[in-house]
Design a protein around this nucleic acid. Structure first.
Length: 559
RNA sequence: GCGCCCAUAGCUCAACAGGAUAGAGCAACACCCUUCUAAGGUGAAGGUUGGGGGUUCGAGUCCCUCUGGGCGCACCA
């Protein structure tokens, strides 16, 4: 619509009443087509011009005659412009940017670099859908940046040196073997057992100390768990086509003594002190951290590192990559913790990463917890979605098609989580998620397949189609949506919010579906109109496919 | 108790730097397949945008307050 805003502001500025930029920045798209294609609310001008909005609208409109404008109406101070449909179709469709290179070039972001860290789940069990939200949001953001020409570097921080892993190490140290799927139950059991048996905790810390001292047999036990976990977790995400470029292990900072070096730097800060229990602490009062007593404890009483110190080491590594942007996708439970790490980084002269927080996924019967076992596992959710999709495919075609069922099932899974704005809690309802009707990714996939089916039935060359033949209300509405694609990608980029893309693809598809049910494409006598409509649906398909791709969702040629 | 986030139709979500009559889907009701894919389309129904104040020509959107939910509140990660 930018091109129409330019057009109107240029036209209105000729009267000399208001400068072009002033007009341009106030233009908007009416929420109802009955109010035209572009509107200028004139209320803000009333004070400057010392006149009523209605009079201002009148004088702006007076004397304007433009061959491409059908009508200009002054509705109570809103100046509403309606373009001739043929002009609208030609202008919007021939100027709409849909392919990646053009859009990247237009926004001048080629070859910029971004480092993104996301998901970084504890390597202790199969991920649940709450953590999957992290990966899905981040993967979409990665795709959007790449689409806009950025070089992305995606990192996963493996917390392989914590008490949770030590718990598993304790529980599995005498086991001959175990699988990834066993770990969740082992983890639940050992947590329950440790509650009643304090001596277990002591042994766990003993193991942890041996691990930190790099004792080979202990390191081997830890490594067995961590590698089993990382393999299991990444296999699940890989199935969803979510991948990382680098896996960074927390333990490296202990074993290569970076923690000691960074600690010695922090010791120079006026915020640093050693508390009465002999632990190294940063006093973060006055830094606007939202807790009563903002202290960041860095070490145990023997100067061995805590997670906080190791995380600072890691953050320094990321900052030292000197990418144009440095982004972290993190659960809302880590908000204050992140503020504290960011504060520590600034103390050392480093710029902390930008952060995207997301809220938790809630279950109808309460919240998820790995420790208690009240979870919906991502792997189980994936399986159910694919089974449901395949069942529906069998109903329709008589044959199973796992490949297609995965595209449909995984798409619906991703869509159901991504369509909600990250800062809002998502209430997860399996029945709801399994519904493939209406506002779901299948709706877009289905209509994409419809378009492909039509395109496959014709040999007409529509390369030089005359867009100005597309003048029905349904065609206009669809064209306007297609023209929005670029600005929607940019909006998603600016807000780091995938739900913008999800909402767009649904609206776009709705406009196509309405056009499709009201108008024939191939079965009409006017060959030129057929060509124009073929060009229109070809662009529609492109926009749907690109948007779904950015959401991490595939398309199929037929459904 | 303190801090941050959220509250929109029965349910799940929209509403583009405050803009016009707050929109969809699901569920329930009534229609539409001799026509390019009915996993679709159309119609009707469903709302004091949690309550109360305020700012503004105009508030779901901004400010205050109350209520309810989520998250957090140093020696876990």
């Amino acid at each position: 619509m930018e091109i129409l805003f330019d057009y109107i502001s240029e036209l209105l500025s000729k009267s000399g009443i208001l400068p072009k930029d002033e007009i341009r920045s106030n233009l908007e798209v009416p929420n109802d087509v009955s109010n035209g294609d572009v509107a200028l609310p004139c209320f803000k001008f009333a004070k400057i011009l010392k006149n009523s909005p209605v009079n201002i609208a009148d004088s702006l409109a007076s004397g304007i005659a433009d061959e491409n404008i059908l009508s200009i109406k002054n509705v109570n101070g809103f100046l509403n412009f309606t373009f001739k449909p043929e002009f609208l179709a030609r202008t919007l469709l021939s100027n709409a940017r849909l392919n990646q290179d053009e859009i990247a070039k237009n926004n001048g972001m080629q070859d910029k670099t971004i480092l993104i860290e996301h998901t970084s789940i504890n390597p202790n069990a199969s991920p649940h859908i709450g953590r999957a939200r992290n990966a899905l949001i981040a993967d979409c953001i990665v795709r959007v940046f790449r689409f806009l020409g950025w070089k992305t570097d995606v990192h996963y921080y493996v917390n392989d040196a914590g008490k949770q892993i030590a718990m598993l190490a304790y529980a599995t140290k005498d086991m001959e073997s175990f699988t990834f799927d066993d770990l969740l139950q082992i983890y639940i059991d050992i947590n329950a057992k440790a509650k009643d048996n304090p001596e277990i905790e002591a042994e766990v810390f003993d193991l942890l100390e041996k691990f930190e001292k790099n004792e080979p047999s202990t390191v081997a036990i830890f490594e067995r768990i961590v590698s089993t976990c990382i393999k299991g977790q990444t296999a699940i995400f890989a199935e969803l086509n979510i991948k990382w470029d680098h896996f960074d292990y927390e333990s490296q900072y202990i074993h290569n003594h970076t923690t000691e070096k960074v600690l010695s730097l922090l010791k120079k800060s006026p915020r640093f002190f050693v508390d009465k229990d002999n632990r190294c602490v940063l006093d973060q009062h006055g830094e606007n951290i939202g807790i009563e007593n903002p202290m960041l404890v860095l070490t145990r009483n023997n100067e061995t590192s805590l997670y906080t110190l190791r995380d600072i080491c890691y953050s320094i590594d990321k900052a030292n990559a000197h990418t144009d942007r440095n982004l972290l996708v993190l659960g809302e439970d880590q908000k204050v913790y992140f503020q504290q790490i960011a504060c520590a980084l600034r103390t050392l002269g480093y710029t902390p990463p930008e952060v995207v927080h997301y809220s938790f996924v809630l279950l109808p019967d309460g919240k998820m917890s790995t420790r208690s076992g009240n979870v919906v596992l991502l792997a189980d959710f994936m399986k159910e979605m694919v089974e449901k999709a395949d069942k529906a495919i069998i109903e329709r075609t008589g044959n199973s098609d796992t490949e297609k069922a995965k595209i449909i099932g995984y798409g619906a899974l991703k869509y159901s989580i991504l369509k909600c704005s990250p800062e809002k809690n998502v209430l997860f309802d399996m029945q709801n998620a399994l519904n493939f009707n209406g506002d779901s990714s299948l709706y877009a996939q289905y209509n994409f397949a419809r378009i492909k089916s039509i395109l496959s039935k014709t040999n007409l060359d529509y390369q030089n189609a005359d867009y100005s033949l597309l003048t029905t209300p349904e065609e206009c509405a669809l064209i306007k949506e297609i023209a929005r694609f670029e600005s929607v990608v940019i909006a998603t980029y600016n807000a780091l919010n995938p739900s913008i893309l999800a909402n767009y693809v649904y609206t776009l598809t709705t406009k196509f579906s309405q056009f499709y049910t009201n108008h024939s494409i191939l079965n009409i006598d006017d060959k030129n109109l057929t060509k124009a409509r073929l060009a229109l649906i070809d662009k529609t398909a492109k926009a749907i496919k690109q948007t779904l791709y950015l959401l991490g969702i595939d398309t199929v040629e037929s459904i």
